[in-house]
Design a protein around this nucleic acid. Structure first.
Lengths: 252, 252
DNA sequence: ACAAAAGTGTTACGGTTACACCCATGC
DNA sequence: GCATGGGTGTAACCGTAACACTTTTGT
């Protein structure tokens, strides 16, 4: 195997290479519809929230649903997912991760649609005024979502996404994606407690996370929530990367 | 939200319901090609192996590749994956798990193909005489696969699959899927050592796994490999399920 | 001065790691 | 009887979990 078989995706032409010398083995295959659905997580107060909208098509008009969109021939599925999040929240450059692809024949009764589910982690504050009214999007606490009857298999998507988030949040520092740049130790602890679904000891939690040396304590204090005020911290991404390259493993 | 929006997939008719009262919101969408690729893991000797075949299409004829197949309109993606494994190995009822969906526009240069990757865990012995000669399938040790130049993005699929297996094998008792019904403690330990990529202490490993109470020690001994012979064990699935329902967590 | 949240240290426990010798058997 | 792999126990260590009081400051 002397020649490379890898394709440089960046330099590919935008038009398909059609002068193929051998039988085109895809010729007889039928194209199917592909879509993406996004489980959009946000954190505020003391609970993790989900961004839902009212399904606008019959026969399920008005039922709660994840927001999705079709995958077009000239866009990757990741792009389709990013566009969907942007359409709903107005935000770009959001942390997203693919969760699972749902491909049962009758998952959508009226058509064969294969849907790839993604989750997004979003800082909620900046979305409040940007939320698409066109889509009737609303933040709902996950404890409430558990009682909802989502459209199609959207509930299963939500469950898979939450499960994956719960797992990943323990070995990758992705929780910070849900918080503003500056946050207090209490906010961080509440975030993790909400995601993991169990209370976390105040002293043990801060001991553990501070020992990792990936947070910077700021001079500034949060005012208003308490007499004394609590210090802000921020996540030091650069420092984290340095530590990782030396073998450090984030773990909660 | 009084009525259920969930669809009972088992009682769905095989013909689409077409008399839809409202605008068919999928009408203008273009169908894409969907396929599955399978990372087939097997264990023998002391190392984890991968089942590969020689790619039969130009311009990559003869390069090592995962086996895949297209997803047809009347089959789920899970079914497509199962069929692919059966075609190659002759085996049915194999443990499979979805890994990730690869949806870059130019991942296959000649067509837009969205591919969902699965891994399968297989007991190797029964496949030796069944392996499809038509596809030129061969078991390759993963240490060797790491040096291969697989077709398209198949190497990335292999990596994702291995990563997922490494993770999952630590919190779910799926390792047994790679072994015959009866196995020795040494075989089990070698299996885990190979998957996790690090040596495991003999005493600590057997202590830990035996303490879980999910293995049954058989009267029978393995002969031939040593003078003394070592006892066979088997995984007690029923017992494991009982323990799980009492809150037990498998963890290695 | 008091109310309300912030911040901080020590101890007990449990699980993980490291490690070496005797055992059973076939030749 | 000896060579080969099989089987077994203990002690040190480390990280986790449990737990309560003092500090700060705005009103």
């Amino acid at each position: 195997m002397s020649e490379s078989s890898t394709i440089n995706q960046k330099t590919m032409p935008l038009v398909r290479f059609t002068g193929h010398p051998t039988p085109h083995y895809h010729k007889e295959e039928t194209g199917l519809l592909n879509s993406v659905d996004c489980v959009i997580f946000g954190f505020y107060g003391t609970e993790l929230h989900l961004l839902l909208h009212r399904f606008p098509y019959e026969p399920l008009i008005g039922h709660w649903a994840l927001l999705g969109g079709f995958v077009h021939p000239e866009e990757s599925i990741d792009d389709a997912a990013r566009k969907t999040v942007q359409r709903l929240t107005g935000l770009q450059d959001v942390y997203m991760e693919q969760v699972y692809t749902f491909g049962d024949v009758y998952r959508v009764p009226t058509d064969r649609v294969i849907t790839t589910c993604y989750y997004a982690l979003i800082e909620v504050e900046p979305t409040f005024d940007k939320l698409s009214h066109e889509y009737g999007a609303t933040w709902k606490p996950i404890s409430e979502v558990l009682t909802f009857d989502l459209v199609y298999d959207h509930f299963a998507m939500f469950q898979k996404a939450l499960e994956q988030l719960r797992r990943k949040v323990r070995y990758q520092p992705i929780g910070f994606e849900l918080l503003p740049e500056k946050f207090t130790m209490l906010e961080l602890r509440n975030l993790y407690a909400s995601i993991l679904g169990r209370p976390l000891d105040k002293r043990n939690f801060s001991k553990k996370i501070l020992n990792m040396n990936i947070l910077v304590k700021l001079k500034e204090k949060q005012k208003g929530t308490s007499r004394r005020g609590s210090y802000f911290f921020c996540f030091d991404e650069k420092r984290y990367q340095e530590l990782v390259s030396k073998g450090f493993l984030f773990e909660l």
